[in-house]
Simulated assay, not measured.
Amino acid sequence: MQRMDIYEILLMLRKRWKFLFSSILLFFSAATVVVIYVIDPTYEASEAILVGDLERGTEYAQTEQNNMLLASTMDFLRSPMVKTEVSETLAIPYQQLDEQIAIQHNERSQLINIVVHYHHQEEAKNIARSMADSTVSFMEQSLGVNELQVMNNASEVVDARRVDNPVMNIAIAFIVSLFFGVSTTFLRHQYVGVIQHPEELERELQLLLLGEVSVKKGKSKQEFQHYAAKSEVNVRGKTTSETVD
């Protein structure tokens, strides 16, 4: 592959600006369609479970009990038992559901946050709510615990906001389109570079072109040689007696 400096690359891009513009426009249009119509939006919904109460001055035994409840509740949230019930209730594949749920807990806090990322706003809210309700129900049935409280008492209260940024995605698509456009133009120049005008041949060879021959499409090599033997070649600056067709 022939090496090119920056000046030669700029000249090449200037000479093939139509192809460069067409390539960028094509890549950018395709990427924009993918971002808008193919890639699903992502919504985030969260629900919180309060373990114990928030009264101050609790005794050491009560604190230890709250810590045990916190650990048990988080184990239930992460267990397949709760996720399986939610998966069956909402008719969402288990693997897909498991990938969209995150359990968060800050140290010294009695709140456990259930964060859900999903491509449907209402489904994200329903998943967060169902995870909290199922966990509290399992804790009450299995351990006889009645000290858990779901912070939002209805799925309509759960807030679901869009967390992906389509404008940023389109901006990234434009930058990628620039890269692909320049790369495609460079490859076309290196491997499919066809000289279309005599002036380009003079610049490439740095030689003076004395003449040019025009041959009709469909003429065979033997026919061309036959006509060339009988005719004079067009020379720049001179009048010829016959022009080869």
Rank of each mutant, 00 (worst) to 15 (best):
R56L: 09
L26C: 11
R129D: 15
T240F: 15
T185W: 06
Q222M: 08
Q196C: 06
S130R: 04
N66G: 03
L26G: 03
E107V: 14
M12R: 01
D75A: 15
Q100Y: 07
E204A: 14
N169M: 01
S220W: 03
R188N: 11
F76Y: 14
N153H: 15
D98W: 08
E59S: 15
T63C: 08
Q62H: 10
I175L: 15
D245C: 11
S23L: 11
M131C: 02
Q96F: 13
S137W: 07
S109E: 13
R14L: 03
E122H: 01
V145P: 07
I175F: 15
H189W: 10
L143T: 00
V158D: 07
R162M: 02
L210K: 15
R188W: 10
K238N: 02
G144R: 05
L50A: 06
G218D: 10
Q110Y: 09
V145M: 09
K83F: 12
Y60N: 06
D133R: 11
N66Q: 13
V244G: 04
V145D: 08
E44L: 13
P166L: 01
Y37S: 12
N67V: 11
I49K: 08
Q149H: 11
M81K: 12
S72I: 03
I49Q: 02
K221A: 02
M139I: 06
F27A: 12
N67S: 11
T243Q: 12
K238L: 00
L148E: 01
W17D: 09
P80Q: 14
Y191W: 07
R129F: 09
L97S: 07
V51D: 04
N113V: 08
E232C: 02
I92K: 06
V51M: 06
K216H: 14
L205S: 12
L13P: 02
R16A: 05
P198L: 02
Y94H: 10
D75F: 15
G181S: 03
K238A: 00
Q206P: 03
H119D: 11
E122W: 04
A128L: 00
Y118H: 12
S137P: 00
M12T: 01
L50C: 06
A48C: 03
A30P: 08
L70S: 12
Q190G: 06
R236P: 01
Y37K: 14
V194R: 07
S134Q: 09
L26K: 11
F27Y: 15
E55A: 11
K219E: 10
I9N: 01
L90F: 05
D5C: 00
K83H: 05
E202C: 01
T184I: 06
S22E: 13
M68R: 10
L148V: 04
L90E: 05
F186N: 02
Q96N: 10
A30S: 12
V51H: 08
S87T: 00
H119G: 07
L10G: 07
G52V: 04
W17V: 04
L210N: 14
P80T: 05
F19K: 12
A31I: 11
A173F: 01
D75P: 09
E64L: 11
L54Q: 12
K217W: 06
Q121H: 09
V38N: 08
G237K: 00
N126V: 00
D53R: 10
N153Y: 14
G52S: 04
S23V: 06
T73L: 12
M68F: 08
I49D: 06
